[in-house]
């Protein structure tokens, strides 16, 4: 067990390192001179000395690998440089925005769990019934509608027409509802269908048949045997679901003017705020990697066969 986890960790660390290098190299290779850009944001007409100062501050006067090393060292100590656009340390700005994104992501996750499990069970229990078919249609639609369109549909209906919810912005629980729905739509659809399929498979297993013959009803079967066994394949996809969540957050934050890191990312990119781009992308990558690692571990705990594979 420990060996399996150890191996996973060993793979994750170099991946993260390589990722950080990729991000750094990508952003560094962008056209234009960031030091002039930084200087220009400070004064309208920067003098050569001011540009040189900015250059030194950004370590752009050093060789490329040194630059990367310094950046990485800074990243480890929580210093990712000055934001061009926000005129303050990148880390501070991210800190300010992080809470909003976490709030949105958790609200969405909560929705996913609250919705996906019952819907999945429903789909399995009403297998081939119109309920199941309806759920399939709904899942297909959820997977096909772009978040930015779905978001505006909700705004038109729930906010403008029915005046039930605030249009946008972050102002307490009501304002969280629509963005959370948009972010949660796709993962809910996918997970509920996965769970349904998984449950159906479990239902066809011998021990369930035995249970059924003993007189347990579907609900009892689901509760006693189904969910735990059906969870294993679902867990496999949680990492990917989380990736979808991260992406959904970006578009959703734009549509709903949600002041989170997703918005910040798009802002940073369109303002060419290089240190900010590097920081937010590194953060997204790290979180994604850690979540996937955690999912791996969870999977290992749930399914012993995988642990054995690690021993090969």
């Amino acid at each position: 067990m420990a060996r399996y986890f150890g191996r996973r960790l060993l793979v994750a660390v170099p991946t993260l390192l390589a990722l950080s290098f990729l991000i750094f190299a990508l952003v560094s290779s962008a056209p234009g001179d960031p030091s002039e850009e930084l200087a220009r944001r400070r004064t309208q007409d920067p003098k050569p000395a001011e540009i040189a100062e900015a250059k030194a501050e950004l370590h752009l006067d050093r060789p490329f690998l040194t630059q990367y090393g310094l950046w990485l060292k800074g990243a480890l100590t929580g210093d990712l440089g000055p934001s061009f656009a926000k005129k303050r340390p990148v880390v501070d700005e991210i800190k300010d925005r992080f809470g909003a994104t976490v709030e949105l992501a958790f609200a969405a996750l909560l929705l996913v769990v609250v919705m996906a499990v019952p819907l999945g069970v429903l789909g399995a229990m009403f297998h081939r019934h119109w309920v199941d078919q309806g759920l399939r249609v709904w899942a297909l639609l959820s997977a096909s509608i772009p978040g930015f369109f779905f978001g505006y549909l909700l705004i038109i209906e729930l906010a403008t027409r029915l005046k039930l919810l605030p249009v946008a912005g972050r102002q307490g629980l009501p304002s969280l509802i629509m963005p959370a729905i948009v972010v949660a739509a796709l993962p809910t659809a996918v997970i509920s269908r996965l769970l349904r399929a998984s449950l159906l498979e479990v239902f066809s297993d011998d021990y369930v048949r035995t249970a059924r013959s003993k007189g347990l009803n579907s609900f009892q079967i689901v509760a006693r045997h189904g969910l735990r066994n059906a969870a294993i394949p679902v867990v496999t996809y949680l990492g990917t679901v989380f990736g979808g969540l991260l992406e959904g957050v970006v578009i959703t934050e734009i549509v709903f003017a949600w002041p989170g890191v997703g918005r910040l990312t798009v802002e940073a990119i369109s303002q060419r705020d290089y240190p900010m781009i590097q920081a937010v992308v590194l953060m997204a990558g790290t979180i994604y990697l850690v979540v996937n690692l955690a999912v791996d571990m969870l999977y290992g705990v749930l399914d012993p066969r995988i642990r054995l594979e690690g021993r090969r």
Binding site: A159, T160, K163, P166, V167, A168, G169, A257, P259
Partner: peptide, 18 residues
């Protein structure tokens, strides 16, 4: 003062009474 970067959502904020 609340910040609504998107002009449309600013308008909606007024119309919905926020």
């Amino acid at each position: 003062i609340r910040f609504y970067p998107d002009p449309q959502t600013r308008l909606e904020a007024l119309k919905s009474g926020q």
